Computed example of a mutant assay.
Amino acid sequence: MNQIKVLSKLFVIVSMLFLSSTMFAQIKQVSGKVNFIRVHEVGGKYGPPNDQIDAEVIIKFRNHPGKAFGFTLRNDTNESVKNGMLDILRDAFKNDYTVTIDYKAKAGNDVRPAGKNGLIIRVWITK
């Protein structure tokens, strides 16, 4: 009986790891001019229920309508990096620089299309 309990717990853990790793696709990249920046309180998610991102900073690109990207601004080990990313985005918005981001979005499958909203992991600008 104990072996069944252990095996069933192991199955649940492996299933959760598999689902969480397949929930987001590989890293993607997009570039353009930022035409929207929104910053809101912690917990203010963005997007429809089936494609929400949990992020405090949300941006949109002029050349990618219908898509939004964001990142958190939390008091954690990445706080200074995220504040730097926000500074870069503000400068780009003000000076009309081209922004490139790397992001992760929900992967699509036979039942659900890929997400249009993504979580930003890197930001840089070019003139």
Rank of each mutant, 00 (worst) to 15 (best):
M23Y: 12
V6S: 03
V81E: 11
A107R: 04
I58C: 03
L7V: 08
K28E: 15
K5N: 11
L19G: 13
K127H: 11
T100E: 03
I4Y: 05
M23L: 14
S21F: 10
V6F: 01
T100V: 03
A55Y: 01
K45F: 06
T72H: 02
I101T: 11
K116Q: 15
R38H: 10
F36H: 08
Q26C: 07
V81T: 10
M85C: 08
D51W: 00
D110E: 13
K104E: 14
K127N: 12
V42C: 13
I4M: 13
D110L: 05
A92N: 06
F18G: 05
N95L: 15
D76M: 14
N109Q: 03
K9G: 03
P48H: 05
S20K: 00
Y97G: 04
G32K: 01
R112K: 03
G44V: 14
W124T: 00
R62W: 06
F69H: 11
N50I: 13
I53Y: 02
K28T: 05
E41D: 08
G115F: 01
G115L: 03
K82Q: 09
H64A: 05
E79A: 09
N78Q: 13
S8L: 12
P48N: 07
R112M: 04
I27L: 11
I88S: 14
H40T: 09
K82D: 13
I125D: 04
P48V: 11
P113T: 13
F11L: 06
Q26G: 15
K60W: 01
D91V: 00
I125A: 08
D96G: 09
A92V: 03
V30D: 00
Y103R: 06
I121W: 02
V14N: 02
F61M: 12
M85R: 01
I125M: 09
Y103P: 06
F36C: 00
Q52N: 07
V99I: 07
I53P: 05
F18M: 13
E79L: 05
E41S: 09
K104D: 12
I4N: 08
D110M: 06
V14Q: 07
H64L: 05
D51S: 00
V42P: 08
V39A: 02
F18C: 12
N95K: 10
R38D: 03
Y103I: 09
D51C: 01
A68Q: 04
V123Y: 03
T126F: 10
I4T: 15
V111S: 11
G70L: 03
